[in-house]
Structures are given as structure tokens and as C-alpha cells.
Simulated scan of single mutants.
Amino acid sequence: MRYTVDITIALPRDKVIEKMDKPENLKHWQKGLTNYELLEGTPGQEGAKMKLEYQMGKRDMTLIETILKREFPKEFHATYDTKGVHNIQKNYFEELDETTTKWISESEFQFSGLGMKLMGWLMPGAFKKQSKKYMEDFKNFAEKGTSVAKITETNN
């Protein structure tokens, strides 16, 4: 399954990258993130692997991020692996003008196991919707300082 989503952010590209390139900012725009840990390599650099732990409702999920390409400010590519799912994500950052950046994210999901293949086939819109939600949450964090971590903490 493949799809592309994009969003326009009212910030210069260097500011967008500055906020995106800090692991400590992930919790502010990736709702449910409870922990991250460097497994190998240099943080944020090609070849680095990081474990990302999420709590989504009553479900815990662990992803392993592997950075494939890091050519900031123009692009950032990584894979995300969890049981039954291999996600290849290619992110591009276009400078529309001095104060506006377009973030384009191309996602490819490869499923293994009958359950995940079925979910990908029956609910492809759910994956795209989640990707778009993360982008909207990043936009709100980058532009206004709105953090989903604060929302999560108040709702508990």
C-alpha cells in the first residue's frame, strides 16, 4: 500500500527542520509516544536505529526506526518496523517562500502475516488518516507550540 500526504507549514524551512530534527520534540507531535531510545549509530544520522514506544489506547506498540537518508533541509527517509509491518517513509521539504514550507510524505507499507495484510486491505484509509494527523500535530506544534503531550497528560 502506497500513498502521499502533504501539509503547508507557516514557518521557514530551516525552522521546520530545527523542530523536526530533535528527538525530544517527538512527544509534542506524535500522540501516544511514551519513550524513545537510541539502539545504534549516531542520533539522527544515516544508519542510526531508534526504538520508539507508543501507547495507543490499551495497546502498546514498539517501532524500530532506521534512518536511510538524511539530506536536511530537503529530505529525510526512514523505515519503521513493527510486528507484521514494514513502513518506508520518504519526507521532502519544499521552501515555498521565505516563511512557508511544504512537507510531503510518501509512505509505503509492506505487510506480513494474514492479520496485518487483511487490515491493510480493509482499512487503507486509517493509515493515511494517521499520517495526516501526525503532520497536522507537527504543524500545530511548530507554528503555535501546541503539544499533544500536554493534551495526553490532561486526559489521563
Rank of each mutant, 00 (worst) to 15 (best):
R2S: 11
R2L: 09
Y3T: 05
Y3N: 06
V5N: 04
I7M: 08
T8D: 13
I9Y: 05
L11S: 12
P12G: 03
D14S: 11
D14R: 11
K15H: 09
V16Y: 01
I17A: 02
E18A: 13
M20C: 07
M20Y: 14
D21H: 11
E24M: 11
E24G: 07
E24T: 08
K27N: 02
K27E: 02
H28S: 10
W29N: 08
G32I: 01
L33C: 06
E37S: 11
L38K: 04
L39H: 00
L39I: 07
E40T: 08
G41L: 06
G44Q: 06
E46L: 05
K49I: 00
K51Q: 09
L52Q: 04
E53V: 02
Y54S: 05
Y54F: 15
Q55K: 11
M56Q: 08
G57Q: 04
I64F: 00
E65T: 03
E65D: 13
I67G: 01
I67D: 09
L68T: 00
K69G: 00
R70I: 06
E75Q: 15
F76E: 09
A78Y: 15
Y80Q: 12
K83Y: 13
K83F: 13
K83M: 13
G84D: 13
N87W: 14
N87L: 15
N87Y: 12
I88F: 15
I88W: 14
I88Y: 14
K90H: 13
K90L: 04
F93E: 06
F93K: 09
F93Q: 06
E94Q: 12
E95R: 13
L96P: 00
D97T: 03
E98A: 15
T100E: 08
T100V: 02
T101E: 03
T101G: 04
K102I: 07
E106L: 10
S107M: 13
S107F: 14
E108V: 10
Q110W: 12
Q110K: 15
F111P: 10
G113Q: 13
L114S: 14
M116P: 11
K117I: 14
K117D: 11
K117P: 09
L118I: 15
L118Q: 11
M119D: 07
M119C: 09
W121F: 15
W121T: 13
P124Q: 00
P124C: 07
P124V: 09
G125R: 04
A126G: 04
K128T: 02
K128Q: 12
K128Y: 00
K129C: 04
K132Q: 14
K133V: 02
K133W: 05
Y134T: 09
M135A: 14
A142K: 01
E143L: 12
E143S: 10
G145W: 06
S147I: 03
V148Q: 01
V148C: 01
A149P: 03
K150C: 01
E153C: 03
E153W: 04
N155T: 00
N155G: 07
